[in-house]
């Protein structure tokens, strides 16, 4: 089965289990969101999938190939790109350098310049600030920069960790609509991790609800939104 297939995944920090046997899949072109409170294990899941931390058990396949045991940079080069939690940009570098970082290992013929132009069209505010250091950007602009850099890496599977974290509602809306547009225009498969259930489920095809390292519910985004029990206990509205 192509796409992302995760089976019985386990992650532990020393004796503490953060993910206790999680299984799910994301079919090609789908946008799936994982919803969960703080400490549910969402970041640990993405960090395991992108090779940043070792796993304690289980498997994960991307287009029928196992992705465990590879260095993060090699997974990025294979199209699995992770935008880490908390506006993952390099503050000491300029906006343009942050963007270019995703392209310097690619061949000139790979069309990096064209993607960069597209990113700047998608996030015009970055284009106005190319020469500025990234630490002078607002939170929303940093998140755009982080996503922009990920796009320049030419992802096939995009792993997004709480892009809404600490942002104002209007900015969240701007970023989420950009994500929604992107995945159709670029044909991306997206795994979006969020605490902001409402915004995430609004653009997702399907949702998976995490609690204490386990899947407690999953289904079509529209169905999850409509389920009164889930709304009360996990979605928080």
């Amino acid at each position: 089965m192509s796409g992302l297939v995760v089976r019985d995944l386990q992650v532990a920090y020393g004796a503490v289990a953060a993910i206790r046997g999680v299984s799910f899949e994301v079919t090609p072109g789908e946008l799936v969101t994982i919803i969960g409170a703080n400490g549910a294990g969402k970041s640990s899941l993405l960090r395991a999938l992108s090779g940043l931390i070792p796993v304690a058990g289980g498997s994960a396949m991307w287009n029928e190939l196992s992705i465990f045991g590879y260095k993060p940079e090699n997974l990025v080069r294979a199209g699995i790109v992770h935008v880490a939690e908390g506006k993952s940009v390099i503050p000491e570098l300029t906006v343009e350098e942050n963007l270019d970082l995703g392209g310097i290992w690619q061949k000139k013929s790979a069309g990096v310049d064209a993607i960069k132009a597209e990113v700047l069209q998608l996030f015009p505010r970055l284009g106005e600030r190319l020469g500025q250091r990234a630490d002078t950007l607002s939170g929303g602009e940093r998140q755009m920069l982080a996503i922009g850099r990920a796009l320049i890496c030419k992802p096939k599977l995009l792993l997004l960790d709480e892009p809404s974290l600490g942002l104002a509602p209007l900015v969240i809306e701007e970023i989420f609509s950009a994500i929604a547009r992107l995945r159709t225009s670029l044909g991306l498969t997206v795994l979006l991790v969020e605490q902001n259930a409402l915004s995430a489920l609004a653009i997702a095809d399907r949702g998976i609800i995490f609690n204490l390292g386990e899947v407690v519910a999953s289904g079509k985004a529209s169905e999850l939104l409509a389920d009164p029990v889930l709304r009360a206990s996990y979605l928080g509205y």
Binding site: D100, L101, I104, R149, C153
Partner: peptide, 25 residues
Amino acid sequence: TKLGLALRASSFQPEISRLAGIRVD
């Protein structure tokens, strides 16, 4: 240079650099 950018990025934020595809090692 590209190498210089990679050198600076890796020294400031190795993890983010890896996630941008840089072979930090």
